[in-house]
Design a protein around this nucleic acid. Structure first.
Length: 442
RNA sequence: GUGCCUAUAGCUUAGUGGUAAAGCUCCGCUCUGUGGAAGCGGCGAUAUGGGUUCAAUUCCCAUUAGGCACCCCA
């Protein structure tokens, strides 16, 4: 018996005291929602302006969707994917990224028959089982833009890049650096891969362990390695841009020309490869200099993706940014959020009878479109005023015994401390009059 | 996944092998129909589990979480 008691006690204690959000996953409290709202609003505005339609896809997808698109050898699929088995034995994965899901939806709903290209954007959480650190979480949110269908036209690549450039600018993020590269197509990539392999084979002894392995599986990744010995070898490695086929060269050159035309500056980075298999031709990455959160936004062209999941080759280009990284950068760059100036009145009751009637007054105000704050649970007029003050309300309405009798209410200007009594029937119009005056002054 | 550092109240930080301290915040009172100030008071913590010990918040181990690096990415 005593034994059992002990167990129960222990259980209780840990249940009560030690629940924490899972590793790498966070709560976003009301005070932080301001940042999220700001980004979401900015993204939506841009999406509307450039005619992108919102698409929401499930958080779970068949695990195979990501294996086929992102690549079985990629880190994301190989070691970072949350996979779960359903009761019927299917393997589902919590999406590690958004593009594959959008592509799946595009195919599933026959969106190729809906007017091309389809311009789509999504906002939502992604999941990758990695070790968290600054700007890196297991659950993070992305907003992504995709242009799918129509022709393989460089102008779409430029539009996607433009969109992210504008998003970062509108969020007042400074020191943004854009890196670009082209990783070729089916025609030119195999040849380049071979040249790269040949080059590195001659220097295999100088490579780090990982790279020795990658040499066979995914030689492009060698360019990504940050180990000292590999970085050195990289200097003399063949450069992809020199080996692109004629049409890839033309395509990439056109992208650069469009960017020049709209005044977006960029740097070419022949080591920019990206860890997702579905990219071809243009790849890009935005960084914020001085804030080390990894890449802020990234993406590229993925013409072969549809084919990988059972469709036909479909020109497409897209990218994504992470909310969390944007917020980290904005905070460390000291970006100020625009102050929300919702106009509210604060209702104060005095006494039980007034309290009883106050809900009705709140409803009356709401019906007139007037936002009402209150602390109806508090009793003393003092503490209610304190709350009103703390919330920076400008107008307080005071309603008590005397006012009930007179069918009136006190309107108090919390700034000047001046107040006047008006009839309840005139309450709404008086508040509106005051607001009108205020906005005329401003 | 690996390595290093960390964990005391909602937040920021003291401190000790023997009753855990403060500032801010929050709540209340002074002031029961009038806020912002001040004074007073209150709530509230040693992440979890185990070990050493007469005694652990302190020392040791494990777990969990956070930070950093590697890897990779958004």
């Amino acid at each position: 018996m005593p034994k059992k008691e002990k167990i129960v006690k222990v259980k209780n204690k840990s249940a009560l005291n030690s629940f924490q959000a899972p590793k790498g996953m966070r709560d976003v409290l009301p005070m932080d929602q301001l940042w999220w709202d700001r980004i979401e609003k900015t993204a939506k505005e841009l999406a509307d302006f450039y005619n992108f339609g919102r698409i929401d896809t499930p958080i779970l997808e068949p695990a195979e969707l990501f294996q086929r698109t992102v690549g079985v050898d990629s880190d994301i699929v190989e070691k970072e994917m949350y996979v779960l088995k359903t009761k019927s034995g299917n393997l589902l994965a919590m999406r590690p990224e958004g593009t594959a899901s959008v592509a799946r939806a595009y195919l599933e709903h026959g969106m190729s028959k809906m007017g091309q290209p389809q311009k789509l954007y999504y906002i939502g959480p992604m999941f990758r089982h990695e070790n968290p650190q600054f700007g890196r979480l297991r659950q993070f949110s992305q907003v992504g833009f995709e242009i799918i269908g129509a022709l393989n036209d460089s102008i779409y690549d430029a539009q996607i890049i433009l969109l992210f450039d504008r998003l970062l600018k509108n969020l007042k993020i400074k020191n943004v650096v854009l890196k670009l590269n082209s990783i070729g197509c089916r025609v030119c990539r195999p040849g380049y891969k071979k040249q790269l392999q040949n080059y590195y084979k001659n220097h295999e002894d100088g490579l780090c362990g990982d790279c020795k392995r990658r040499l066979k599986t995914n030689p492009l990744r060698l360019l990504d390695c940050k180990k000292e010995e590999c970085v050195k070898l990289k200097e003399k490695a063949p450069i992809f841009l020199d080996k692109l086929c004629a049409s890839c060269t033309r395509h990439f050159k056109a992208v650069l020309e469009y960017l020049d035309e709209i005044g977006i500056s960029y740097g070419l980075d022949n080591t920019l490869v990206r860890g997702l298999d579905y990219y071809s031709q243009t790849v890009f990455e935005f960084l914020a200099e001085g804030v080390d959160v990894g890449s802020l936004a990234g993406g590229g062209r993925y013409d072969y993706l549809m084919e990988l999941i059972g469709g036909r080759i479909t020109p497409a280009v897209g990218g994504a940014v992470s909310f969390e990284r944007l917020i980290e950068v904005m905070k460390s760059q000291d970006v100020k959020l625009p102050v929300k100036s919702t106009r509210k009145v604060f209702l104060i009751h005095v006494g039980d009878l007034a309290k009883k009637k106050s809900l009705k007054i709140v409803e009356e105000l709401r019906a007139a479109g007037i936002v009402v704050a209150e602390a109806l649970g508090k009793e003393s007029i003092k503490s209610q005023l304190k709350v009103a003050d703390k919330q920076k309300n400008l107008i307080a309405l005071i309603f008590g015994q005397k006012e009930i009798f007179e069918e009136s209410i006190i309107i108090r200007d919390l700034h000047t401390g001046l107040q006047e009594t008006v009839l309840l029937s005139k309450m709404v119009s008086e508040i509106q009059r005051r607001w009108r005056e205020k906005s005329e002054i401003n």
